[in-house]
Design a binder for these strands. Structure first.
Length: 263
DNA sequence: ATGGTTGCACGGCAA
């Protein structure tokens, strides 16, 4: 079994079809997990995606916000979506491909103020992470083959942000979020596939704000997009890449794809 | 300290 899997917060699949074609051509993933497709299932650009070779689609979308898709060159079974913290938000989709469970997740961004009393969105984010922890604890199965990918909207390591000190109070890198994400990791003994290859001393980002004059020069990035595998798959990890160049593509998303190869 | 940009859809809201 060999599998190349990409995860990408595409920030509107309809506005990013050229980028999707470029990802397909340059990284040749077998599976592409998208977040923030921002489109209802009926309006999803199925034909364009099928033309790129992804003929097995699981689309889980809604109008204007959120939305996920799993695009695959190989057959998919057991497609499921889940509601998280009681909302119908389209933030979780899973399927089985080549005997591997693929979990595609879009954690709420959490708004601007890192205080659950002042900001409902922040409370929602922490509740969502807590629910993920509970769910993964309940289905603990160390020998299972599973991959969890997505925009988790948390940069856990000091080197996952451009300035640890300056971002301690900024949503995405606050200690309480990092703790919540850490408990999800522990709940299933997830292995961070990207940090497996790129040492934690090295700065590494997958997102750069649109609100910078020159994202590349200022380089104020954060690593919000992740690929995790179960311990059973750790020995099969072959490579991991964050496609930084994609931030400079025409009509770029603010996130770039992360690609992991498994053998 | 503040505002900076983008997408959806056509007025703010979410990121």
């Amino acid at each position: 079994m060999a599998l190349r899997i990409a995860t990408w917060n595409i920030n509107s699949v309809r506005r990013r079809l050229d980028g999707l074609a470029r990802l397909a051509a340059e990284a040749k993933p077998d599976v592409i997990c998208l977040q923030e497709t921002k489109v209802q299932n009926g309006d999803f650009p199925r034909e364009a995606v099928e033309k790129l070779g992804y003929r097995h689609l699981f689309i889980h979308g809604m109008k204007a916000y959120n939305g996920l898709a799993i695009l695959s060159r190989k057959p998919m079974t057991k497609m499921e979506s889940r509601l998280c913290v009681g909302r119908e938000d389209c933030r979780y989709a899973s399927a089985i491909i080549d005997g591997v469970e693929i979990h595609n997740c879009y954690v709420p961004a959490g708004g601007d103020i890192p205080d659950i009393k002042l900001n409902d969105k922040f409370a929602h984010k922490l509740d969502f992470l807590a629910e993920l922890e509970t769910w993964w604890t309940a289905r603990r199965a160390p020998k299972a083959k599973a991959i969890l990918v997505g925009d988790l909207n948390v940069a856990p390591l000091e080197t996952d942000v451009w300035s640890h000190k300056q971002l301690l109070d900024v949503v995405s890198h606050t200690p309480v979020e990092v703790e919540h994400l850490g408990r999800v990791t522990k709940a299933h003994d997830w292995v961070d596939a990207v940090r497996h290859f790129i040492p934690p001393e090295q700065k590494l980002y997958s997102w750069w704000s649109y609100r910078n004059r020159d994202w590349n020069a200022s380089d104020r990035g954060r690593r919000l997009d992740h690929v995790w595998v179960t311990p059973a798959m750790k020995a099969s990890l072959k490579s991991a890449k964050i496609l930084r160049d994609a931030r400079g593509w025409d009509d770029a998303s603010d996130h770039v794809p992360v690609v992991v190869e498994i053998k």
